[in-house]
């Protein structure tokens, strides 16, 4: 099954996506990784507004390379998502609908995904040069002092991902490897 999605995403749309489905993203995704998540958590704690309206949005866990002159962005593959596990449940509660990254997620994150309806999409780790071709625009949104860790608004075209964990908690990282395990 292939889904073509654009933000803002509705809970209904997210719940149609099943682990193992291909998901093609067009439109806006926001970048954030470790340092930006920490800053967002501090804003939430102080009761302040996040730098962008998170409702229905997708966060792409990435810290891209600088763009060469004439290019939109440098290499831009996913980083390990698990480092954002401490912050993700709160963001999902606030309306975050999609996360793009690579690697395992915690039980707490999966619980929040099921409760509020969110999906975890996998991009191919280490395919940063290929993925950069899907990015047609980047704008600085917040925390430019963080350099590669700043929050950026990316406009993507045909960004190919695979649904890893769906809003029912099905997990391709469990079912995929189990089929090939010979130990």
């Amino acid at each position: 099954m292939i889904h073509y999605i654009e933000t803002p995403l509705t809970t209904e749309k997210v719940r149609q996506i099943k682990a193992g489905d291909r998901v093609v993203i067009n439109g806006i995704v926001y970048t954030a990784r470790d340092a930006a998540h920490k800053k967002m958590a501090e804003l939430i704690e102080r009761g302040e507004q996040l730098p962008f309206d998170i409702s229905g949005q997708i966060i792409y866990y990435v810290g891209p390379c600088p763009a060469r002159p004439g290019e939109v962005i440098g290499s831009a593959g996913p980083t390990t998502s698990g480092r954002m596990d401490a912050y993700a449940p709160k963001l999902i509660e606030l309306g975050l609908k999609g996360m793009v990254g690579k690697g395992l997620r915690s039980e707490d994150v999966i619980k929040s995904m099921k409760k509020y309806g969110a999906v975890y999409l996998g991009a191919i780790g280490g395919a940063g040069a290929l993925i950069a071709r899907s990015v047609i625009k980047q704008e600085m949104v917040a925390f430019p002092e963080l350099g590669p860790e700043a929050i950026r608004k990316l406009t993507v075209k045909d960004f190919l991902t695979i649904a890893i964990i769906d809003a029912s908690g099905n997990n391709l990282y469990e079912t995929g490897p189990a089929r090939y395990r010979r130990l």
Partner: peptide, 15 residues
């Protein structure tokens, strides 16, 4: 990805 990185002189991986 490796082919593209070599041709375009860009990082194979952003890390």
């Amino acid at each position: 990805n490796a082919d593209l990185a070599r041709q375009k002189q860009m990082a194979i991986c952003q890390d």
